[in-house]
Design a protein around this nucleic acid. Structure first.
Ligand SMILES: [Zn+2]
Ligand SMILES: [Zn+2]
Ligand SMILES: [Zn+2]
Ligand SMILES: [Zn+2]
Lengths: 137, 137
DNA sequence: CGTCTTATCGCTAATGATTCTCAATTGCAC
DNA sequence: GTGCAATTGAGAATCATTAGCGATAAGACG
């Protein structure tokens, strides 16, 4: 009864994206695209957007919406597991964190108000030690 | 030492925005603009954007970035106080919530990783009872 | 391998939300 | 009232993200 998941193909571009993403920083699709081109890739911008979204759906990459509304991506290190981040607003470097206390709390609050299908967003941002030292921040 | 706060003026448009905002729902600037025009106002879209931002800065309205990246506003009921929301993804209705446990946690995590100037985002979204009943959701 | 199907590419044009420009207004202090 | 900077409204300009489309090339099969 379900749409037969269209077979995903491993293309050169897909590989390039995955490779580029092996850092620890959150960056916009445009930013990843620039980096790829800078490294000699001929990949197109739309392809980077498509690739990142696909990878995000598979849980291969994390996606967060910045305060300004852009979507930032980076390779995920926790796999499928649900988690959150502490991200540097200046350089994008992030640490994955766990907020077990909150996971329950979220559902309790939802129930208390009769809201169903609860989803939550928790993002911590700050300025990392390096950026602070460099005066960016 | 500070920039002399440019005197804010109470204009007809400013008042209209404030009045329109006295509901409990989160809506986009465009949505508020439509509503104002529908009520007969001749206010311009840019003015609504400017007004909402100004009000958000003064703490008169809450602003949140939706999952799709648009900014949603509504009149704040908690005044200056720091707080978070449980918002309906379908109709925008929201409840203000308090997460004392988390407030500390956020700073502890930040310190633990050496990140400074910690900021956080916590948003709960779900489907409110009305929307669930109406099958929207 | 060679063939065939169609997911994926890369470009470019199109969206959609938000911001900027600028002449015309209009709070509001004096 | 006057004067002037803050504010407005319409439309152009930005910016990130998508959609459309002909060209490619994964990958299944034989
Ligand atoms: Zn940093
Ligand atoms: Zn969580
Ligand atoms: Zn609702
Ligand atoms: Zn908080």
């Amino acid at each position: 009864m379900n749409a037969p998941t269209p077979a995903p193909r491993m293309t050169r571009q897909r590989r390039e994206i995955l490779d580029a993403l092996d850092t620890r920083d959150f960056r916009s699709a445009q930013s990843w695209h620039e980096r790829l081109r800078a490294e000699g890739s001929t990949i197109g911008l739309a392809t980077v957007y498509r690739g990142l979204q696909a990878l995000a759906d598979q849980g291969e990459v994390d996606a967060v919406v910045s305060e300004s509304g852009e979507t930032l991506y980076r390779r995920c290190e926790a796999g499928e597991e649900h988690h959150h981040h502490l991200r540097c607003r200046s350089c994008g470097k992030a640490v994955e964190i766990d907020v077990p206390e909150f996971e329950d709390f979220a559902h309790r609050i939802g129930d208390a108000h009769g809201y169903g299908d609860i989803r939550h967003t928790i993002e911590l941002t700050g300025v990392c030690p390096e950026c602070a030292a460099a005066g960016r921040g």
